[in-house]
């Protein structure tokens, strides 16, 4: 997978997270996975379809999701209720919308699916015939892994 696909998502995540959390965020080491990967507990999933196809996952623990949703709502949430899920969905929405603009400017064209949220224990994701690039982003509320698996349509 070409690295230029993931950079717009990482840049957008940085911009948006800094703005909505009002704090600095740090970037961890990029890594590549070609087999099944564990999902941490809360994953916002966005599909891409066009001349680039695949999916993007924003993966975090339940604690991180609750802490981020609490910060964005300016109130303490104790569970990831409907409001919490709507908040994480909106976060994924804002990041992907901004990333897509950057990718469109680079000449890639594709549409996005609305984000879906998966929650649960012991989940994993397997991508057939496409490897995933993962960039951890560290916030005060915890780590979010931006997990991108896309390929050019042949």
């Amino acid at each position: 997978m070409r690295v230029e696909y993931i950079n717009p998502f990482v840049e957008a995540a940085f911009d948006i997270l800094k703005e909505v959390l009002g704090d600095e965020v740090q970037r961890g080491e990029l890594y590549l996975k070609s087999t099944s990967q564990a999902v941490m507990g809360v994953a916002a999933f966005v599909g891409l379809a066009g001349n680039v196809e695949g999916r993007v996952l924003f993966d975090m623990t339940m604690e991180t999701a609750i802490a981020i949703a609490s910060e964005m709502n300016d109130e303490t949430l104790t569970t990831l209720d409907d409001l919490g899920k709507a908040t994480i969905t909106e976060l994924a929405n804002m990041i992907t919308a901004q990333a897509v603009t950057k990718l469109h400017d680079l000449g890639f064209t594709f549409d996005l699916t609305p984000p879906a949220i998966f929650t649960g224990e012991n989940m994993e994701i397997t991508d057939n015939e496409v490897e995933a690039l993962i960039v951890p982003v560290i916030t005060k509320q915890g780590k979010i892994e931006i997990n991108v698996a896309v390929r050019e349509r042949t």
Partner: peptide, 8 residues
């Protein structure tokens, strides 16, 4: 359609 945005 987002409960979060409506609230904000």
């Amino acid at each position: 359609d987002s409960m979060f945005v409506k609230k904000q």
